[in-house]
C-alpha cells in the first residue's frame, strides 16, 4: 500500500515560502517514520494562488515531486471561504493519508474546517513525529510549552499544521522534472468578501533594523517597570526597546514596539529578553537574532531553551545592578 502526503505550499509573490521547505522536511520524516506499514510514500505539493505557474515549476524542479498548481482568482490575499472551498474541491477526489500545512494565520484558519469537510481529523502546531511500538506519535505543545502532548491519529486522513521553526527547511536541489499540473478553479461569491488590507501598526518601526534590542514581557508585572527595559537599553550605544504581545495588549507599550510573528520579525546582533516567557509567536519573531540573552525569574520559561545566555533573576532587581556595574566599569577607564 502506498501512503500519500500532500503539502500545502506557499508563495509570497517573489519566492517559495520557507514554511514550504519546512513542511517538506517534516513530510520526509513522516515518510521515514511510517514506512514500516506501507511500501512507499508519495509526496506531492499543492500550490494555490494567482499565477502559480512559476512557483509550481520551481517546487517541482527542486523537490522532484509532482505539483498541482491551482490558479484561483481572488487569492492574492488569503480569503478563508475561497481557500476552504478550493481545498475541499481538490481533496474530495484525491485520497491522502496526510495533508500538511503551515501553522500560520491562514493554515490555522482552514485546517480545522477542511478536516471536518473531508471527514478527517485535525492537529494544529505539530512539532515532531516519532515512531513508538508501530504507531506514530505526534508532538505538540500545551501550556505555553511547559507540557508536550503525544497524539495519535485514528482516522483515514489527518490535516496537520506544522509549528514554524520546528523543522529546519530543506534546500532540495534535485533538478529533476516531475509532473506539474495546472488547473483553474473559480469559486462563486461567498458570504465573506475581501475589501482591503491595512498595514501593521509596527510598520516603519526601528526594530526591524536595530542591531541591539532590549525587550520586556509580562515579567515586568507593572507598567512603570518598563523603565528598567529602557535603562538597560541605555547602556548600549544604539539599542531599540521592544515588547512581547501581552504587555502591548495591556496598553503598557505601543503595538509598534511588539516583537513576534504578529508584530515585527527582528534579526539583531543582540536580543535581550527580560521577563519574556517565550511564546511560540514571540520565538518565531526572534529566531534570526544572532545572540539571545534571557533574564527571567522562571527557570522553566521556554525562552531559556533558545537563549545563548540565561540569567535566572528578577529583572527589577537585576537590571539596576547591571546598569550600576556598567557605570563603575566605565569610570576607571576614563
Amino acid at each position: 500500500m502506498t501512503q500519500k502526503i500532500a503539502i500545502i505550499a506557499g508563495h509570497d509573490g517573489k519566492k517559495i515560502t520557507t514554511a514550504t521547505w519546512e513542511l517538506f522536511a517534516f513530510a520526509q520524516k513522516l515518510a521515514d517514520s511510517s514506512n514500516s506499514g506501507s511500501d512507499n510514500t508519495d509526496i506531492c505539493f499543492y500550490l494555490i494562488g494567482e499565477n502559480t505557474r512559476e512557483g509550481a515549476e520551481e517546487i517541482s524542479f527542486r523537490s522532484g515531486c509532482p505539483v498541482i498548481a491551482a490558479d484561483v482568482p481572488g487569492t492574492r490575499n488569503y480569503q478563508g471561504p475561497i481557500f476552504k472551498k478550493t481545498l475541499l474541491k481538490l481533496f474530495s477526489k484525491n485520497t491522502f493519508n496526510y495533508i500538511i500545512a503551515p501553522h500560520n494565520t491562514s493554515g490555522m484558519d482552514y485546517a480545522p474546517a477542511i478536516s471536518l469537510g473531508l471527514g478527517g481529523t485535525c492537529m494544529t502546531a505539530v512539532e515532531d513525529v516519532k515512531e513508538k511500538e508501530g504507531s506514530l506519535l505526534f508532538l505538540r505543545s500545551m501550556y505555553g510549552g511547559k507540557i508536550q502532548a503525544r497524539m495519535e491519529i485514528d482516522a483515514p486522513l489527518a490535516i496537520l499544521t506544522l509549528a514554524p521553526g520546528a523543522f529546519k527547511p530543506v534546500q532540495p536541489e534535485k533538478n529533476s522534472t516531475a509532473d506539474v499540473s495546472h488547473i483553474i478553479i473559480d469559486t462563486p461569491q461567498a458570504k465573506m468578501t475581501y475589501i482591503g488590507s491595512l498595514p501593521s501598526p509596527s510598520q516603519g518601526s526601528n526594530l526591524a533594523k536595530a542591531e541591539v534590542i532590549v525587550a520586556g514581557g509580562r515579567g515586568i508585572e507593572e507598567e512603570e517597570n518598563y523603565q528598567f527595559i529602557e535603562q538597560l537599553a541605555d547602556i548600549f550605544p544604539r539599542a531599540a526597546t521592544g515588547a512581547s504581545r501581552p504587555i502591548c495588549d495591556y496598553g503598557w507599550v505601543k503595538y509598534s514596539q511588539q516583537v513576534g510573528a504578529t508584530g515585527t520579525i527582528v534579526a539583531p546582533k543582540l536580543y535581550i529578553a527580560c521577563g519574556i516567557s517565550g511564546s511560540t509567536q514571540h520565538l518565531e519573531g526572534i529566531r534570526d537574532s544572532r545572540f539571545i540573552i534571557a533574564i527571567n525569574s522562571d527557570p522553566d520559561a521556554p525562552i531559556l531553551q533558545v537563549a545563548d545566555v540565561c540569567i535566572i533573576e528578577d529583572l527589577t532587581e537585576f537590571i539596576p545592578i547591571v546598569v550600576e556595574a556598567y557605570k563603575n566599569r566605565k569610570r576607571p577607564a576614563n
Partner: peptide, 25 residues
C-alpha cells in the same frame, strides 16, 4: 466520528544549549 487520540503528556526534554550564569546577583 474521528478525533485525535491523546497517548500521553510529557515534560519537554530540555535541550537548552545556552550558558546559565551562576553566582550571586
Amino acid at each position: 466520528v474521528h478525533t485525535p487520540k491523546l497517548n500521553d503528556i510529557i515534560l519537554p526534554i530540555k535541550e537548552a544549549q545556552g550558558l546559565f550564569i551562576e553566582g550571586n546577583i
